[in-house]
Amino acid sequence: MYKRGIYRIVANEALTGNVYRMVLEGDTQYITAPGQFVNVELPGKFLRRPISICDYDGRTITIIYKVVGEGTAIMGEMKPGGELDVLTGLGNGFDTATGTRRPLLVGGGVGVPPLYNLAKRLIAGGAAVNVVLGFNTASEVFYADEFAALGATVTVATADGSRGVKGFVTDALKSVPEYDYVYACGPMPMLRALGGAVNVPGQFSFEERMGCGFGGCMGCSCKTKNGNKRICKEGPVLRTDEIIWE
């Protein structure tokens, strides 16, 4: 079930040079799983912008976004007290009822945020959570401390080696304790490499340019072993055993 609502911006601050955290206050009852996303209407933009949900509670939604184009630049300029028209409850989100005891969570860049509420849930369920966060360079790292504060074991990898393990998230896998399940979100090359590097079951969250965000336009479809799926509706999370790597 999804719904449109008007949300009040209670915080909008830079975490790094171009990554921002926005906290929205309003109805959160339609959000049912970590890994779901919201679709934000922006002044002067025709299509909404889909942004993954980093965290939520009974009255607030936290989203983390990177300023990459005109739409997200508009978001970056928004001030607390302002209002946003937002669709919530979108996407399937991560399934946490997998019975995993030692899950590995792998995030790359702005693929990191949806793993935060997931880690929170898994830790609350008694799992020993390992998190690998991949970035280009030390100045782009965000949320490593926040994941650690939840009780997760955090490994950071940077492509230039300026912080943590030098290389990609796959290079950091060697230094991670044993795991029985993998959750991931990040750019396509990262997911593809990770898919080839791990041999436990898991769920990956994907990205695609969307028209509507709620299954109306078929703009974001992908092929899976279980037939065509809409990234916005039957996704963005796919089980690793149904992914077709093209």
Partner: peptide
Amino acid sequence: RFGNPTPRIAECTEGMINAV
């Protein structure tokens, strides 16, 4: 039909392009 490869949506001023 699956349709065309993605991306198949683009933003425009007061509109959008689709190639579903």
